[in-house]
Design a protein around this nucleic acid. Structure first.
Length: 691
RNA sequence: GGGGCUGUAGCUCAGUUGGUUAGAGCAGGGGACUCAUAAUCCCUUUGUCGCGGGUUCGAGUCCUGCCAGCCCUACCA
């Protein structure tokens, strides 16, 4: 087999937080692929690093009163600890905050400059004068300029869906300091990606660098289709600089400006390789400027854009090799729901490892992962039954039911007739290898388990437990166990990219380390057999529950910490207890309710009514609604006339004792004297819909 | 609003270029075995292949229209 040179990366973990099971989908996927390639005898490197730059880390360091370097050093140690715990094996773990990266960024930058892709533009951005920093969109909240919804994110309104720039918000507030930011204009540098349009069109649409749905997505969303009636669409300029202060690398030819984190992060792949090369006497060009070397990136679908447009563009401009393939995966859901930090389903790697073995998750993910972008679900019932029945019940069982019979004799000196079992399983190796190669791990697992399902009946029929009772059949007993253990060993070789631990233990059991895929093609004979020890423990439900519980407690503790930061708003929990949250509703459900701003044009007592006031509401023009509202104990009619309220305007009219009520007025509070009418902010007009 | 993906047994999913009676694992039911981590083995129940049209000698598979779910979204296609 000719040896391939394969360089692999996974997305760089951000140094601002712990690793959770969602991240691990990708890292385990990558590790399996790398281990597979190495097992096949290829020269494969996994080059990885922490992503360390950006505003988030700068802010966090400030908050904690220490340097950014301290924050990222701590994260680096934690990350590497977690990866070791999950048996994720990389050849170098660097940091984007390294000298190598800084130098490489400079070189890439210069090439892009030389290619004439950089231009300057002024950008209006909000500036927090208290913190002395420009604010990224996510650090600004304010009132939506379109629908006046308050406390909306900096980039789009969660109520009406309008998108805007933070500078357009009506009452912008910095979430860092709580102060009102001001608009400042600053010079930014942009890369004119459109100049590379033809290249990107070609690279994304041909050559099998991307999964087909990704290529479609890029064409549909960004590139356009030159063949279609609309034609190609221009690519937007990419804002690549951030003014000081910013935690990152200062741009050499543009003092006081820094590369945006997404510029230096992927260069970190190259920088990490450089560190490895220096340590191993290799050269960078051998990997990054060599047509004979493949480059594979594993990423999540959320960062598709950066890795399939910007990154190839950068590489192309700087004269590096382009990715052979970008492998993109979906997200993790837990028991069918989105992971949630507050609910505690964003299980931390560390929390998992406190209660459960890494092999179980590695196998479970492998059995779920396909080559496409579908989300995968972590369902704990399935998790338990899959690991127990597939791995312990079927695979490991082969060894545990036969090894001890040959502890003293070892394996037979020649491989006995097994009716073609070993041979057919050996020839299945190609299909299994293809599945691994294509990231169809679920298919690989299925194929492997099929083999296990053939091996167990063999043992069943051969009845070694009966053979051992008859001394005359000792050779037959040894032969049967030799077959069972060889079939087991073969399965373990196939599984070893997923379960390195099991491979190692199997090597020890049979006194023959499992290091190469080809070992699956030839039976092992004459080897001694060690005393059998449990190779894998069954998963117990109580361990899963314990992990869930621990994670929940962590989530609560973190929430409590956040609360401490906002003591000034220490509101009681009582209202939520009195009226717990109702079931989730969809936007469609909500849109059924037509809420309108209305002006109370008349209010009067109703004779004979204990709680009711009769209100006449105007929706502007001639639109009048009569509403009976149970607010008599809380409001005097006089206070009400003229004011604006929010009403349910499309409520089915209801005949009441005192007349027809054509809607409801929105108010909070338990009732009685404690009723608080909702008031729209100044500027809203009767008849406007509330979204 | 637009785009993409998905919809096959209770659950998780296979179903190659359209071709006999639609499959596997798990779960369920019955039995066997006792070497093995209550593991294993044999037998077995279950399907309007989301719905409706169409193309075809023949459609789970191709076309089309709906419906549902998930994801994306740079008011952009």
């Amino acid at each position: 087999m000719n040896q391939r040179k394969i360089l692999v990366t996974a997305a760089l973990p951000y140094a601002n937080g712990p690793i959770h099971l969602g991240h691990l989908v990708e890292y385990i996927q990558t590790d399996i692929w790398v281990r597979f390639q190495k097992l096949r005898g290829h020269h494969c490197l996994f080059m990885w690093a922490d992503d360390t730059h950006g505003t988030a880390i700068m802010i966090r360091a400030r908050k904690e009163g220490r340097s950014e370097e301290e924050v990222i050093a701590e994260a680096n140690a934690e990350h590497q600890r977690d990866f070791a715990g999950f048996q994720i094996q990389y050849d170098n773990y660097g940091s984007t905050h390294s000298d190598e990266n800084k130098k490489l960024c400079g070189e890439v930058w210069q090439s892009i400059r030389d290619a004439g892709l950089v231009k300057e533009k002024d950008v209006d951005q909000l500036f927090d004068t208290e913190q002395g920093t420009f604010l990224a969109d996510r650090f600004v909240r304010g009132t939506c300029p379109e629908c006046n919804a308050e406390d909306q994110p900096g980039d789009n309104c969660s109520k009406c869906g309008t998108t805007y720039s933070p500078a357009e918000l009506t009452n912008p507030v910095s979430t860092l300091s709580g102060s009102t930011p001001e608009i400042r204009t600053a010079k930014h540098l942009f890369i004119e990606l459109e100049q590379l349009h033809g290249f990107l069109e070609d690279w994304t649409q041909t050559g099998d660098h991307l999964q087909p749905e990704v290529a479609n997505y890029l064409r549909g969303h960004f590139l356009g289709d030159p063949q279609s009636a609309e034609g190609a669409k221009p690519l937007r300029d990419w804002d690549i600089s951030r003014p000081a202060p910013y935690f990152g690398f200062e741009i050499p030819d543009c003092p006081d400006n820094y590369w945006y984190v997404w510029f230096d992060a992927p260069v970190g792949y190259i920088a990490s390789t450089q560190q490895w090369c220096e340590r191993n006497g290799d050269t960078l060009d051998n990997w990054w400027k060599n047509d004979a070397a493949e480059i594979h990136h594993f990423i999540g679908k959320d960062i598709t854009y950066f890795h399939t447009l910007f990154w190839p563009g950068m590489l192309k401009s700087a004269g590096y090799s382009l990715p052979t393939k970008v492998h993109i995966h979906g997200f993790l859901t837990v028991n069918g729901e989105k992971m949630s930090k507050s609910v505690g389903t964003a299980f931390k790697a560390n929390t998992y490892l406190d209660h459960l073995p890494p092999a179980a998750l590695r196998y479970y993910y492998a059995s779920k992962l396909g080559s496409r972008l579908d989300d995968i679900d972590l369902n704990f019932d399935e998790f338990i039954s899959k690991v127990n029945s597939d791995l312990v019940g079927k695979v490991v069982n082969l060894a545990s039911r036969s090894a001890k019979f040959v502890k003293d004799t070892g394996l037979s000196n020649s491989y006995p007739d097994d009716g073609g079992l070993f041979e057919s399983a050996a020839s299945a190796g190609n299909e299994i290898a293809n599945a691994y190669e294509n990231c169809d791990y679920n298919k690989a697992m299925r194929l492997i388990l099929e083999l296990a399902d053939k091996a167990n009946p063999f043992v069943e029929n051969a009845e070694p437990w009966n053979l051992r009772k008859d001394p005359a059949k000792s050779q037959e007993l040894q032969d049967v166990c030799t077959i069972a253990l060889n079939l087991f060993r073969q399965l373990v070789i196939y599984l070893s990219p997923v379960l390195p631990d099991l491979a190692e233990k199997t090597g020890e059991l049979l006194n023959d380390p499992l290091l190469h895929w080809d070992q699956s093609q030839t039976p092992l004979t004459g080897s001694s057999v060690a005393k059998f020890k449990h190779m894998m423990k069954r998963i117990e439900e109580k361990d899963v529950r314990a992990m869930e519980e621990a994670s929940k407690i962590e989530a609560e503790q973190e929430a409590a910490q956040v609360d401490n930061h906002s003591e000034q708003f220490a509101d009681s929990e009582q209202p939520m207890i009195d009226e717990p949250m109702t079931d989730e509703c969809t936007i469609e459900d909500f849109m059924k309710v037509d809420l309108r701003v209305a002006r109370i044009v008349n209010a009067e007592h109703v004779e004979g009514a204990r709680k009711l006031l009769k209100l006449t509401l105007s929706l502007g023009g001639d639109h009048r609604k009569q509403v009976f509202a149970g607010i008599k104990a809380a409001y005097e009619p006089d206070q009400l006339v003229g004011r604006l309220v929010v009403m349910v305007a499309n409520l089915k009219p209801r005949q009441m004792k005192f007349g027809l009520s054509e809607g409801m007025v929105c108010a909070s509070g338990p009732g009685g004297e404690e009723v608080f009418l909702l008031t729209p902010d100044e500027g809203s007009k009767p008849g406007q819909r509330v979204h």
